[in-house]
Design a protein around this nucleic acid. Sequence first.
DNA 1: GAAGAAATCGGACTAGAGTCCGTATCTGTC
DNA 2: GACAGATACGGACTCTAGTCCGATTTCTTC
Lengths: 203, 203
Amino acid sequence: MSDNTGPQSAYSVGAPRRERADAARNRARILDAAERLFHEHGVDSVSMDQLAQAAQVGKGTLFRRFGDKAGLAVALLDSREARLQAAVLSGPPPLGPGAPPAERLTAFLTAYADFLDAHLDLLHMSETARPGARYRIGSYRLWHRHVEWLLGQARPDLDATVLAHALLAPLAADQRMALRDEVPLDRLRAGVTELARSVLAGR
Amino acid sequence: MSDNTGPQSAYSVGAPRRERADAARNRARILDAAERLFHEHGVDSVSMDQLAQAAQVGKGTLFRRFGDKAGLAVALLDSREARLQAAVLSGPPPLGPGAPPAERLTAFLTAYADFLDAHLDLLHMSETARPGARYRIGSYRLWHRHVEWLLGQARPDLDATVLAHALLAPLAADQRMALRDEVPLDRLRAGVTELARSVLAGR
DNA sequence: GAAGAAATCGGACTAGAGTCCGTATCTGTC
DNA sequence: GACAGATACGGACTCTAGTCCGATTTCTTC
């Protein structure tokens, strides 16, 4: 628990100043309570008030620390996401470096589809708590750059920026949540694979 | 104005019973006020309270009539969307019937991209007022069926259902709103065109 | 044109997200 | 170990979407 997001808010970047003891204690309390309550009652049914109460912390503290519900979800996802990031950036092929771009791309997209399904609730909260949240979160930007780079490697003639957004679009939490019943995971995986394959194949 | 959504709530379907006079009057008032206020202050900055007051109508009336903010947006979009629907279903090629599936598909996707940009605010409200709203709205289902059918015509070997969702995904209002600055309209159009072309081209 | 049933009205009410700011706690310094 | 400045706390407050239900209006029938 709480192997998380260093000092300051989940959104901050610089500021190397050491975190105060009470702040650290409260962050841990909040994350623990969130983990527990979300697991017990489901992400959607837990209000920030309940959470603050369960963590024995004021509401102000909760929001100052994590910004909003999305920020809290990001913090909870952090360690799980870090594992996928490590695998992509420096793990073994085909997900990590070494494999040809086309293989890396489909490996990534299907891995992310699995990740999406496994943590759908938290991802949904992190992406939809406020409009456009998905596209501002650091991790999306990372995934986008990765896909963009792979596309650029394989097909320098294409608009990699736009196509990377397009390939990631069907992996948005809101779409997945809404279509989960209609589209089972294996068909989603096959779909994004087909899409990537087609784009890389060219005409 | 208020050439809109017949009797009953925007969500209802059957119920051929005639609408009461006061109900009709109030619907018109609400739609007129919404059109005006949204244009003046922007969709996001107008609260349902303000709107009810401006329309000289109780809040309960507002919500009973349109269900929620998304429903109101759907009603306001109705006539504009109807034009696009008519063009797609029975207009001249390449958007309407007659052209080969591949041409119709790119014609539709680019036309929808234009439509998206032109009515982004209302579409955003209709798609994001509550989670998954986009995928339940009647119009999305229509567009999806259309794309699915075109894909099926051209490439019966593919999973048209999934790929249709994937081709429509980059045209979600939330993504477009967030990436508007990064991706100009012509690149979005080119991107979805490239995507569709690749998928139809096969290996 | 009066009565009764059905549909609609409207504003008080609930609930939840996010803000504000006076107060309490911490940390480095002497 | 006490002081001062910096940092964090917490709960009352605001703002908005959405609900509820007694009062009112409309429509139908005779």
